[in-house]
Design a protein around this nucleic acid. Structure first.
Length: 768
RNA sequence: GGGUACGUGGCGGAACUGGUAUACGCGCACGCUUCAGGAGCGUGUGGGAGCAAUCCCGUGAGAGUUCAAAUCUCUCCGUACCCACCA
């Protein structure tokens, strides 16, 4: 019979489902939650999803065969702007659109033949889920970790919503590409900065990629310096500046305020008023994009005002310039042209003085000024508090009530969830208010405190809130009393391995860490880091090496490939194409090679009769492969794992094996190509229980030690011969073998051996 | 401009702690099989010299350390990703 995946794959997927081999038991031993980032229900599975879910499944199956009680959970991160925009385009409700996508993608995901545990499925749009998202919001609110503040925010004029700093890419909305403008509104914020130090200090202990750790450190951006006060003459007003270089204070020759600085009007002299206000108008007109890209040269104007440098009492002029950022530090800097490139450029352009005053000890300077109340040590962070409000329909309603008399009042816990009403007209409105304001019945509510007529908050939450705690829910997805029971969380968490995309290095991973730390401090978690180990996977590009996109026409449809080659081939091909953290272009020829391999496997395991005695050589080969295969999978080196299987088949193909030997081969293959392994396990080897419930073969260390090794003999570092010898030869033994070797002897005639290098079980180098 | 990672055949890539460079696969060439093949099987496949055994060169370029360098150090060139006036 020919190998035709279409005939066997669905059959086994159904069988596994009926036997529930993919379900994680709660009271198992040796629990292991293998976490992958839950997908966004965009409507269609792409090859990237296979990369993200079918490859970690190799590890999941391997761990299961090694006796772990594996949970490989799945869910959907289903709120968010893209669904809303797609629904607007198609003129259907986002809920209908999203639910339909989830249904379709679930079907597609099941084609992969994974251990994904659908019984624990979590969906962020399910009121039983977002009830707890709201609950956490309220707990954080009680603890002062949620607050409202009027801030300048990034406003996308097209999506008509506020964006987090992280969602602004090069001054444009990362979703639609429109230029972002600055707008001042009052927003709900998470006080992420309260955890800035912990978030940066705890990175060290994590088993994460160095790049991810570094990205987080840079994002939090802690710098240690000082605040120094500059007095405005003839007043009692002080202007604080932040500096990491207090030692350069003697060289400060002028001071620069950000255009947003509140003291600006006070400082500006009458004669400079016109010029200054014209400058501010100009800056306002500049979009973020221009500020960053087009207009890189420094601009600014003299305010005509002065301040006093506290270290030497020199009067220095005050300027305003937009190269100073209003939102970092104090929004003002002391300019030291002698030591700072930016200040130097500005000073040269506007003819400001440069002083080469000597540097002094920063510590001493600050301490000295501190006595007079003119300085203090200060840590500063780039990290901002997290603006979580969105003026959009498709998100979790923020569970607050606005009462004329009492102000903002929390929705009582027993009234959760505040359900998102089904709206006919959910389009964003031009006034910037959330579409929920149109749901009149939903909006009206009594104030929980005074009982008067009040209104619900109409903003919804950023979807990053939903995904900041989803992994907790996997441990106890149906719990109605708590977000998850402490007991169950203790069995599974923290997550021992989290595999996902490098694009989440900062936002998602940082937010999840913030949530975990906050919940820990509130007493709900026993751990304060969510993910013990993290590994990133790469991105699969189109055959042309470009990012897959409909407009480029280079999209590979996994459904089409499955029809052509079957799921096992796709899984193995993706595993084989290169290092998992690297990704790379899809190669239509490369996949042929994997299909050929599986066809050869199919023809290989077909011997009806067993030999009387097992082939010793085959045992040795299998034993070695078993060890290497296990190491490869554990280290997520799937590419060399596949090549190991290929080598194994090459070595065994013309041998006559026992049923046990064939069985071992199939067990090694099973995590990679679960369907064909199962089929051959039953139909050819006549087993009556799933291969995926078998134990991973144990390799024999003693047999490994018997392996012959290839001893390299070098003369002056150049290879002259390679000998097969037993392991563990001593230096003396190797020396006599080497010196009596014919192909070596001829080089040694009449030469003196200066040095004899011996590397055990590897090589010897004769230096002459 | 800054940071990080990386640079190995025609291509994807392998190489443990510095110790046989190019495993495995693709492609290509030749042969076998077949009515036929864009199927299957076999052999070969970094460059150069040689009938051959064999020898020399070779991991972006150049230097250095070492008995020994794809791997470590320095300079330069190039690519990818991230950040982007953070005082």
């Amino acid at each position: 019979m020919k190998y035709s995946p279409a005939k066997i794959e669905r059959k086994w997927q159904r069988y596994w489902e009926s036997k529930q081999i993919h379900l994680a038991k709660d009271k198992g031993k040796d629990n292991f939650m293998l976490l992958t980032e839950f997908p966004y229900p965009s409507g269609n599975l792409h090859v990237g999803h296979w990369y993200a879910f079918a490859l970690p499944d190799i590890l999941a199956r391997y761990l299961k065969m090694n006796g772990h009680n594996v949970m490989y959970p799945i869910g959907f991160d289903a709120f968010g702007l893209p669904a809303e925009n797609a629904a607007i385009q198609r003129n259907i409700n986002p809920r209908d659109w999203t639910e339909q996508n989830i249904k379709y993608m679930t079907k597609q995901l099941k084609n992969m033949g994974t251990l994904l545990d659908w019984s624990r499925e979590v969906s962020t749009i399910n009121p039983n889920y977002y009830k707890w998202t709201q609950w956490m919001f309220l707990k954080f609110y009680e603890k002062g970790l949620v607050y409202r503040d009027k801030t300048f925010v990034n406003w996308c004029p097209r999506d008509k919503t506020v964006l987090a700093n992280e969602q602004v890419v090069n001054g444009c909305c990362d979703r639609c590409g429109t230029e972002v403008v600055q707008k001042e509104i009052t927003q709900w914020m998470f006080r992420t900065t309260a955890y800035a130090d912990q978030l940066i200090d705890d990175i060290e202990g994590l088993d994460w990629p160095e790049t991810t750790k570094l990205a987080q450190r840079n994002w939090i951006g802690r710098s240690e310096g000082a605040i120094i006060q500059f007095l405005i003459p003839n007043s009692k007003l002080l202007i604080p500046v932040f500096t990491t270089r207090a030692d350069t204070l003697f060289g400060a020759t002028y001071l620069v305020l950000a255009p947003e600085h509140p003291m600006l009007t006070k400082l500006t002299s009458d004669e400079n008023l016109d010029k200054a206000s014209r400058y501010l108008e100009e800056v306002k007109k500049k979009t973020e994009l221009e500020r960053l890209h087009i207009d890189k040269s420094k601009t600014g104007v003299d305010t005509g005002g002065y301040v006093v440098n506290p270290i030497n009492n020199e009067k220095i002029p005050v300027w305003v310039a937009d190269y100073v950022l209003g939102h970092y530090g104090t929004g003002a800097i002391m300019a030291v042209p002698a030591h700072d490139e930016r200040d130097k450029e500005f000073a040269e352009k506007f003819n400001l003085p440069v002083s080469n005053a000597p540097l002094e000890d920063a510590q001493k300077i600050v301490e000295k000024l501190k006595e007079k109340g003119l300085a203090e040590f200060k840590k500063n962070y780039k990290l901002h508090d997290w603006v979580l409000s969105r003026q959009r329909y498709w998100g979790v309603p923020i569970p607050m009530i606005r009462c004329e008399k009492c102000g903002y009042v929390a929705v009582p816990e027993k009234e959760l969830p505040v359900e998102l009403p089904y709206l006919e007209d959910f389009k964003p409105s031009d006034d910037g208010r959330s579409p929920l304001a149109k749901a009149k019945d939903w909006l009206k509510v009594k104030c929980p405190e005074c009982g008067r007529d009040a209104e619900r908050e109409t903003d919804t939450m950023d979807t990053f809130v939903d995904s900041s705690w989803y992994f907790l829910r996997y441990t106890d997805p149906k719990n109605k009393k708590e977000f998850a029971s402490k007991k169950k969380m203790a069995e599974w968490l923290p997550v021992p391995m989290y595999i996902g995309g490098a694009e989440h290095n900062t936002m998602h991973l940082l937010y999840s860490r913030f949530f975990t730390k906050a919940l820990h401090d509130l007493g709900y978690l026993d751990f304060n880091e969510p993910f013990t180990a993290r590994r990133n996977h790469g991105i699969i590009l189109g055959p042309d090496g470009q990012k897959m996109s409909k407009s480029r026409g280079n999209v590979v449809d996994p459904d089409v490939e499955v029809k052509k080659y079957g799921a096992d081939t796709i899984r193995m091909y993706l595993a084989f194409m290169g290092p998992y953290d690297q990704g790379g272009p899809w190669n239509p020829d490369g996949i042929q090679g994997v299909f050929r391999f599986l066809t050869r496997v199919w023809n290989f395991i077909s011997e009806p009769e067993e030999p009387k005695t097992a082939d010793k050589e085959a045992d040795r080969i299998i034993n070695k492969a078993t060890k290497e295969m296990g190491d490869d999978i554990k280290n997520l080196k799937f590419n060399t794992g596949v090549s190991g299987l290929m080598k194994l088949l090459n070595a065994l193909e013309d041998k006559w094996l026992t049923k046990k030997q064939y069985g071992t081969f199939l067990k090694l293959l099973a995590p990679f190509a679960p369907h064909i392994a199962e089929e051959l396990w039953w139909t050819v080897l006549k087993n009556k229980k799933s291969i995926h419930l078998e134990k991973w073969p144990k390799h024999d260390e003693a047999l490994l030690a018997e392996e012959l090794i290839e001893l390299v003999i070098q003369i002056n570092g150049i290879k002259r011969d390679v000998l097969k010898v037993t392991k563990g030869l001593s230096e003396e033994e190797v020396k006599s073998i080497a010196l009596s070797n014919e192909s070596v002897k001829k080089y040694l005639v009449g030469k003196e051996i200066k040095k004899f290098v011996y590397v055990k079980d590897r090589l010897t180098n004769i230096v002459i």
